[in-house]
């Protein structure tokens, strides 16, 4: 949640991605560079069964796994469906489109790259009520700022 207006893009695939495809795509995006913030969205894959008679039992799920992006391990908690990026400037967008096309060239479904505003620009009343005045504005609106494990920081080349 920064003051300056940075361009944002959203990468939406027509199907949910397998962890290995997501890993491949994210690594390709990291190579392009120029990414300030990134959020991976999709339906949640919980660690334990959330509802029903089996509530609380472990939920082994092959798609909930650790992938390697850049030089960091990332624990996937969702089935990847959308990736939101905040970029340094607009000059990176064509390279991102190219990277996405490259990854999805052999797939039998498409993937779109859209430009717009996808991250919150200021905390809402509910954010203030839930997280208080000192919530981390960098990740507010992307993930729950009260989570103990913070964001994964992938070191750039600059």
């Amino acid at each position: 949640m920064t003051e300056a207006i940075y361009p944002q893009v959203r990468i939406v695939s027509a199907r949910f991605l397998r962890p290995d495809t997501a890993e491949q795509l994210l690594n390709r995006l990291v190579q392009v560079g120029g990414i300030l913030r990134m959020s991976i969205n999709g339906p949640s894959i919980p660690e334990t069964v959330p509802y029903g008679p089996a509530r609380g039992q472990p939920n082994p799920h092959p798609d909930r796994k650790v992938i390697r992006v850049g030089d960091q391990d990332v624990q996937l908690r969702v089935q990847v469906g959308t990736i939101i990026l905040e970029l340094e400037d607009e000059s990176y967008i064509p390279a991102i489109c190219e990277a996405v096309d490259e990854v999805f060239a052999e797939k039998d479904f498409s993937c779109a790259v859209q430009q717009g505003r996808y991250m919150k620009t200021r905390p809402t009343m509910s954010d203030y009520a839930k997280y208080g005045p000192d919530a981390d504005r960098e990740i507010l609106g992307l993930v729950d700022p009260r989570r103990k494990d913070g964001p994964v920081i992938i070191q750039g080349t600059k």
């Binding site: 695939s13 027509a14 199907r15 949910f16 991605l17 397998r18 495809t21 339906p43 949640s44 894959i45 919980p46 069964v49 959330p50 509802y51 029903g52 008679p53 089996a54 509530r55 939920n59 799920h61 092959p62 798609d63 089935q79 469906g81 797939k107 479904f109």
Partner: peptide, 23 residues
């Protein structure tokens, strides 16, 4: 799906399966 049914209105997975958080 007896419980945790979420998935009918979501995109399909890469292999064509409907999303199921309990798989």
């Amino acid at each position: 799906r007896g419980a945790t049914v979420h998935g009918h209105s979501l995109r399909l997975a890469e292999n064509g399966m409907m999303f199921d958080m309990l798989q």
